[in-house]
Nucleic acid binder design. Structure first.
Length: 461
RNA sequence: GGAGAGGUGACCGAGCGGCUGAAGGUGCUCGCCUGCUAAGCGAGUGAGGGGGCAACUCCUCCGAGGGUUCGAAUCCCUCCCUCUCCGCCA
């Protein structure tokens, strides 16, 4: 028996300036879908909505190509129908022992005409697909338009906020001094902006992962998945990372394989080309994977140490669900991500991103941000998104409604719960002791031989 | 990596040049029947796209991509994947 989804709902009195949860989209409204038919029917509306996140979007080229394509399609199909008709007649005559040579000559000529039209059609379709596949998802109407992150709505804010660590050091200084991290050796092995955990640092990292998995799998009823840590082009395209963000993923030189930037990638592909039963929804998966990101051009001075690395560990929670319930489910995922930070005793806030900050595939996203005392800054430790149909359409993941009827696209939701590296930075700066040691958060102790303090000399008690 | 077998609809499974968008079964939907349940009987039930107000009609799809042919699920080639055996290996 699974634990209920609402089990970890928090006290509503802690909410800060909370906007109402978003309403589900109306499926009858074609403008909520992003395919060529919808563009054909509602180009102006769709263009306006896409411009809320990307002001320079222009659909006029697609419209022109699509008109050309439709005309060509009709003439090609007329030729095909004619060819099929004659071929059938040929079959009949041959069976009857009659002569069919003149008919065969007719179809030969037809075939050549057909081939020309067919080639032009394929070319047109290719160009249309290229443009459509690069379009981002439509933002939910409740998402604030524009790209100004300061407009992001704060949904909740919880926990005690420190202005600096107990010793005044940052997490790199503390962790290096205590022998938890060895960044010098990490860069010797792989380059800058990689981490290497050792000793108690590695054990704390591991315990964080265990703690989160136990929470989601044990308490919230997710199925644990350990997917491949590489994925091919089709898989990356389905979840939305390709083709537009090819420069952000590590690619294997000799194979059609990429290191996954997030478990969202393999989890989206998990049900690719399937038709699910509505009764089985929502399907809930939890995955642990390392995540690999090139972070090209993203490094700033404040982002050393564990703040932004090319590889980090993450526990991901993921759901396939119906369009009617996806926004309800999004709220549940947010609560489940927050619960991890809450139980670790860290100060955090939850914000709803503005349209311009949304990832390609997302219609609405909440970030859970943890506070790093030394920097007096919030850093994202979780990003929870409703991708609506966007990934399902690219992956052809549908469900059969209860009572039968046409298969419909599922909605997909993903959330980090959580990424550990920034979390570890926040833990180190928040739990640092004035004597130079480090307290271990209570929820992790069962996974750390009940150790509660790491002393300045590296011993524990 | 080598040898063999195979990839067909939501699922299982037949078909191996035209009458096959695909037998049969399971599942599902509707109806009938039956103290309840189970069973039984009858009908319906793939996806995508084009045209049409609609009834309807046309095109495409039997792992993917090419080829042969008037015509391909069926023949040929390439690739991918699965299974069995052999080899190798954490």
């Amino acid at each position: 028996m699974r634990a209920s989804d609402v089990e970890i709902e928090s006290d509503p009195s802690t909410h800060v300036a909370c906007p109402p949860p978003p309403l589900p989209r109306n499926q009858a409204d074609q403008a909520d879908m992003l395919d060529i038919k919808a563009i054909r029917a509602n180009s102006k509306e769709i263009e306006a909505r896409l411009r809320r996140r990307a002001p320079d979007i222009d659909l006029s080229e697609i419209e022109t190509l699509d008109r050309d394509r439709l005309g060509l399609l009709q003439s090609v199909e007329r030729l095909k129908a004619r060819r099929n008709e004659i071929s059938k007649e040929v079959g009949k005559r041959k069976k009857a022992g009659e002569d069919a040579d003149s008919l065969i000559a007719d179809t030969r000529a037809l075939g050549e005409e057909l081939a020309g039209g067919q080639d032009r059609l394929v070319e047109l379709e290719k160009r249309i697909d290229e443009i459509v596949i690069a379009l981002p998802n439509l933002p939910h109407p409740d998402v604030i338009p524009g790209g100004d992150p300061s407009q992001a709505q704060t949904i909740r804010e919880e926990g005690d906020r420190l202005t600096k660590s107990a010793t005044g050091e940052n997490h790199v200084q503390i962790a290096t001094r205590l022998g938890l991290l060895d960044l010098a050796r990490a860069s010797r092995l792989a380059g800058s902006h990689f981490a290497l955990h050792r000793g108690w640092g590695a054990r704390i990292e591991w315990s964080l992962l265990r703690f989160m998995i136990d929470l989601h799998v044990g308490e919230s009823g997710y199925e644990l998945i350990l997917p491949p840590f590489v994925a091919n082009t089709e898989t990356l395209t389905a979840s939305g990372q390709l083709p537009k963000f090819a420069d952000q993923v590590y690619r294997c030189a000799d194979d059609d394989l990429y290191l996954i930037p997030t478990a969202e990638v393999p989890l989206t592909a998990f049900h690719r080309s399937e038709i699910l039963d509505e009764a089985s929804l929502p399907l809930r998966y939890c995955a642990y994977t390392p995540c690999f990101r090139r972070e090209a051009g993203a490094h700033g001075a404040s982002e050393r140490g564990l703040i932004r690395t090319h590889q980090f560990n993450k526990v991901e929670i993921y759901r396939f669900t119906t369009p009617e319930s996806s926004y309800e489910q999004l709220e549940i995922l947010v609560r489940q991500a927050e619960e991890v930070v809450r139980r670790l005793g860290l100060h955090f806030r939850t914000v709803r991103l503005v349209a311009g900050d949304l990832a390609q595939q997302a219609a609405m996203t909440y970030d859970v941000e943890v506070y790093i005392p030394g920097q007096e800054r919030y850093y994202e430790v979780s990003s929870i998104s409703n991708c609506e149909e966007y990934q399902a359409r690219r992956s052809r993941i549908r469900y059969r409604p209860i009572g039968g009827g046409k298969a419909r696209y599922v909605h997909t939701l993903n959330g980090s719960a959580l990424a550990t590296s920034r979390l570890l930075a926040a833990i180190i700066e928040t739990y640092a002791r004035a004597d130079g040691g480090l307290d271990i958060p209570e929820v992790l102790r069962p996974h750390l031989a009940e150790a509660s303090v790491i002393h300045p000399d590296g011993s524990t008690s």
